[in-house]
């Protein structure tokens, strides 16, 4: 429940949020970043870390992970503070013109500039689309993430999904759980080669069962007792104490929508001369914005970050002279490098 006073708070540590750190940092503003994911990079790190991106100016091709790593290196001199696994929940105007942002961890940030760089919204696990699923969450047998691996000790665990999370946890919980069954719609899995090899050896040793199929229904009175599957051989019932469902993440604009901002086509409306929203001192950049001619490109988000920073700095440091500096000079000073001679 910490209270932090800072120059700017950036919601979303994707490419636009990270570049906002650079632009604000060049103008001597200190930034804190809040992101619901467990790592910086946003969609680039979560959805397509290994996929190539071809439309970053002067970089013919790089992957989502490389883009993130490069941005982290580029912003490191400005010492951004990351608050990961954290959701921005509420925004409240203070009497002195500043904003108070409250997060899912109960922490509060007091700031003159809030920058919403939340892309498609906050990422949450996709829920099982079964009417009865809601009855089994909160400790009654159905989870979408592992908070405490101890909770699975001695349990009959069914893990649904075919990606990294499903395979990683199937391997990790083997030995701890009484039994692990991995349920997937096909027999191919996508995970790191070493993990896939481990899965294969655990399957051959009979320590993990892999069942091709999809979940049809959940059964149990007060707590999950079995999972009904549709398999190539017909419907079957699997006894189950704990079901872990990993169907990836879905973006939600629920929290941002609650901030009281004027929206446009379901996105945040902004003034394109400075990327301020309908609330003074609250800015929005990147995919979360909508304005005439908007393009959802990373390079557009970078441009939006620059215009935002030059306006926001007048709120953050009203007395300071907002001089435009070429990065060549400013970064040499910051990085302590020798000035190049011409």
């Amino acid at each position: 429940m910490a209270i932090t006073e800072t120059d700017a708070v950036i919601i979303g540590a994707g490419p636009c949020g990270l570049f906002a750190v650079f632009e604000l940092g060049m103008l001597n503003a200190q930034c804190h970043l809040i992101d619901i994911l467990d790592k910086p990079g946003g969609q680039c790190a979560e959805l397509y870390p290994d996929k190539p991106i071809y439309d970053i100016p002067a970089i013919p091709s790089l992957t989502g992970k490389e883009l993130t790593d490069n941005l982290l290196e580029q912003t490191a001199p400005f010492n951004p503070v990351f608050h990961l696994n954290t959701r921005a929940d509420a925004l409240e105007a203070m009497d002195d013109g500043r904003w108070k942002l409250t997060t899912s961890t109960g922490d509060e940030f007091i700031t003159r500039a809030v920058v919403i760089a939340a892309g498609g919204g906050s990422f949450n696990p996709r829920k099982l689309p079964l009417a009865e699923a809601g009855r089994y969450v909160d400790g009654k047998g159905l989870s979408y993430a592992v908070r405490d691996a101890q909770a699975f000790s001695g349990k009959r665990v069914v893990i649904a999904g075919g990606g990294d999370s499903a395979v990683d946890w199937a391997v990790a919980l083997t030995g701890r759980a009484a039994h692990v069954t991995l349920v997937h719609r096909r027999s191919e899995f996508r995970a790191a080669p070493a993990t896939l090899a481990k899965l294969q050896s655990l399957m051959e040793a009979g320590q993990i069962d892999v069942q091709v199929g999809t979940i049809l229904a959940l059964h149990g009175e007060d707590h999950l007792q079995s999972v009904e599957l549709n398999t190539p051989a017909g419907a079957i019932q699997l006894p189950c104490d704990e079901l872990l469902a990993f169907y990836g993440l879905v973006a939600s604009l629920e929290e941002v929508s609650s901030f009281g901002l004027t929206m446009r086509n379901g996105r945040v409306a902004v003034d394109t001369s400075n990327f301020e929203t309908s609330l003074p001192g609250v800015y929005a950049i990147g995919d979360i914005t909508d304005y005439p001619g908007k393009l959802k490109l990373i390079l557009s988000g970078f441009h939006e970050a620059a215009l935002m920073a030059h306006h926001a700095i007048q709120r953050i440091h009203p007395q300071a002279r907002n001089t435009f500096q070429h990065s060549t000079t400013a970064m040499q000073l910051r990085l302590g490098k020798e000035k190049t001679t011409c």
């Binding site: 099982l128 999904g161 719609r185 096909r186 191919e188 999809t214 990836g248």
Partner: peptide, 11 residues
């Protein structure tokens, strides 16, 4: 495409 379809439910 198959890997992304893994994220869908009613497959």
């Amino acid at each position: 495409e198959e890997c992304t379809l893994d994220l869908a439910y009613h497959v």
